[in-house]
């Protein structure tokens, strides 16, 4: 989650980051699993809307799940922005003590995290978005091994997301059959209308 969210409503969600049902199910599973692994208060997936230059909450488990999905904020800002632009995982602690998040996120969500872990959803050399874990259990904080684990899980999630998205973009078998029939029919029409060979 970013320090400077500037959240806006879901109505402006761009098609590029509007997931189908399979993606929604996958992303929800990712955040619920991440939350369980790290004993966290919340977890969220933010996808990068490149055209708008924004990060969009696509799935949330725990604090904020009722209203955060669809919210967006400028990419390249805050902790999530750093993870997006650098492709590196990040962990931050003592946020509440420092008054971080208080101004924007707290007003938007009513929840002020004290600690945050975030890892890029990286597939090949692209970063599709960011997986965040808010207020993980104490033993998960500021540790290299926990950051490694989150980064590994995020990479697996990104690979799954890429597969699901690619399949969604492929024509459905029924559509392919229908298009084939159309082509066969058109070919038959052409052949039937063509002058006899001889």
């Amino acid at each position: 989650m970013s320090q400077t969210h500037g959240l806006v409503p879901a109505a402006s969600t761009a098609p590029a980051t509007r997931p189908g049902s399979a993606e929604r199910e996958l992303l929800q599973s990712v955040v619920e699993t991440a939350r369980a692994i790290f004993g966290a208060a919340a977890s969220s997936v933010l996808l990068h809307d490149e055209a708008a230059g924004e990060l969009v909450f696509q799935a949330v488990s725990g604090e904020g799940e009722e209203f955060l999905v669809g919210s967006r904020f400028p990419a390249g800002r805050g902790l999530a922005g750093w993870v997006l632009v650098s492709g590196e995982p990040m962990v931050a602690d003592d946020l509440r003590e420092q008054g971080m998040f208080a101004k924007d996120v707290a007003e938007d969500t009513g929840y002020v995290p004290d600690a945050l872990m975030a890892a890029p959803l990286a597939h090949h050399d692209r970063v599709l978005g960011v997986l965040e874990v808010l207020d993980p259990a104490e033993q998960s904080r500021s540790s290299l091994s926990e950051l490694d684990l989150l980064a590994l899980f995020a990479r697996q999630a990104a690979a799954a997301l890429a597969v699901v998205t690619e399949r969604r973009e492929e024509p459905a078998p029924a559509a392919v059959r229908a298009r084939s029939l159309e082509l066969v029919s058109a070919l038959r029409d052409v052949l039937e209308g063509a002058p006899p060979r001889g």
Partner: peptide
Amino acid sequence: QNVRVAWTGGKTIRTTGNS
């Protein structure tokens, strides 16, 4: 690992990483 660093708004946080 687990180092206190400067952050935006004149604040500091604790964080971890090769960075």
